[in-house]
Structures are given as structure tokens and as C-alpha cells.
Amino acid sequence: MKETFEIIYTVLTGSASAEEKERFEGLMEEEENRQLFNQIQKIWEESKAVRSYKKYDARRSFQELTRKIQEKKRRRKQQLWIGFSGVAAGLALMLGISNFLGISEGNQNPGNVIFATQLGNRSVIYLPDSSRVWLNSSSSLQYSGDFNKKNRTVRLKGEGYFEVAHSKKPFVVNVGPFNIKVYGTHFNVSAYQNDLFIKTCLAKGKISIQRTGYDEYMVKPGELITYDKADASFSKKNVDPDEYSGWRKNLMYMHNESLENLSRKLERRYNVKISFEPEKLGEEVHYTGTFSNENIEEVLDAISIASGLQFSKKDNLYTITRNNQKQHKSFND
């Protein structure tokens, strides 16, 4: 059997001796050997084609490719940032690293720029048109590579305070169910996915709410427009706009705010979890007031003292309960 391969070799190279040829003919009388010959012949012929084949170093090449992709991305971002101040560029670069290679971008197109803040962090974004956006904790702002070419559209998830630079090109904030069209102004939008409401508050200037199929609504300064996700309805009331943008300066304003809502805000600001026992406590108790730079326990202390509650801590979770030694009372409600 071992010799069969040798004989086939001599036949394939045309170097078989008379004796080898004779033995080959003998072998070919059997179907099994004919089949073997066909297989070896195929291997023999095709192995000629792999003469130039070699093992290419995929690992080295992949590192090279990674560098190229990175470089491309960096250049693209640089182009977007032309005209930025040094500070803004530094900030953008920092965020760029966290967005390394777009891995965190998920399903987005490569031309898009995304800024995102983590839980407990905030940042200021300078847009290519020199507008500024303060991005609150666990929020993201996204705009396409051609921002400021024809129009200025950004997509907001979470909460942002906008100082929009004057321009003939409309500035539009997309918050999902509707758009906010801006005419040069300062305003705050809170559009967290977990919240039941999207709140838009105009500090100064002119903005409008645009929703497909509805008339454009012009918002007046000091107006708070609340969109209820449950029934897709809008409502408005007059407020102090500072209360809705205080987070920018680390101030937290509360105006008859439920403990439930307040806790959501605290969770985002301090990156903690807060729960109540009993659960209805969250809706029962309401607050009005201001916090600035206190740490989470100071804030919870203040809340507890004001309304006869107490809190306990386990890991990252704070649990607020009724203080049994004191009478139940709610502050300002």
C-alpha cells in the first residue's frame, strides 16, 4: 500500500520505469486503486497552484488595521472640530478615547459623533457651530458628521441644557416623540428613557415644539412644557427656569417634588440606588428646596430630618423608611 503512493508519484511525473509502469497497470485493475489515483492526481495538480501560498501573519496585520481604523477615525473627528477652542478639543479628545473605535457606539453610523456621560458624571460639549451643551449624568448627545453644513440636528437622550449659538441654520433637538426647534437661546431638556415625562424649559430666547401632525408650538421664556409619555400629551406651566438647569452648577432645585422623582435625580447624580419602605412613601412625601454641593448622605440627612424619615445603607443601596420614633409628617405638603 505504501508503495502504491510511490508508483503513482512516478507515473504522475512521467518518470516511471518499465517495471513501475507494469505494476501501475496491475494496480489500476482495481476500482479502489483507480479512485486513489484520481484523488492523488487532484492533490498533485492542485498543489502546484499553492506554490505561492504562505501563512500570512493575521495578528500583526490586525494590529496594523486597528491603527489605520483609529487613525481614520481620529482624522475624521479632527475635521469636525475645526474652530473649537483648545479646551473643547481637549474635552472631545478625552471622550474620543472612551469611544475608542466606536465600540461603544453600538448601532450607529461611523460618521456620527456621540458624547455620553456615565452615571454620576456631567460634561460640557462644544458643538461645531460653537453652541454649548451641558450634558447631565447618564445622558448622550449625538449628531451626524455633517452637522452645521445644512442644518443643526442633535439627538438627546437624558438631560441637557442648551446654549444655542445664533445662526440661520435651524437648530433642532430630537428627543424621540418630538423635535424642539431652536431660534438661538438657552433651555433645558430632560428626556431620560426611564422617566415618565420629557420636560422642556425655556430660560431665554425662542424655541418651539414640533411634532409630526401637529401645529408648531412656540414656547415662551419661563414656560415648562411637559410631555407625558403615557398618553402622549403636552402640558405647560410657568416656572423659574433656574430650577430646571441648576444641575449645571451642581444645584438641585426641587419644587413640590415627590420623593420618588427626587430619588431618581439623586440616583443619577450620585450613582447610587435608592428604595423606599413602604414603596408608597415615594409618592406620599414631597419637597421644595435647593441642594448644591452636599454629598449623598448629607442630602438624605436633610430629607430625613425634614420629613421624619430615616435611611440605612447597604453597599450602594440606600433604603428610606419611616422614622418610628417621630411622628409622620411631610415637608411642605
Binding site: 497552484a49 501560498y53 490586525f62 488595521l65 448601532n107
Partner: peptide, 29 residues
């Protein structure tokens, strides 16, 4: 959905065979 590790694996799976395929046409590795 942006999994760079998966991208690396697809790359490593096909890189060398595709280079050989290209080289058989280009005669320039």
C-alpha cells in the same frame, strides 16, 4: 453592533486564505 472582538475573529479566520487568493491573482504578496 460594534463587537470589535468578533471583528478580530472574522479577520483572523479569513486573512491568510484571502491574502493567498489575492496573491494568486496579483503576484505580489
Amino acid at each position: 453592533v460594534g463587537d470589535f472582538d468578533a471583528f478580530r475573529l472574522l479577520f483572523e479566520r479569513y486573512y491568510s486564505p484571502l491574502c493567498n487568493f489575492a496573491n494568486s491573482r496579483l503576484q505580489d504578496d
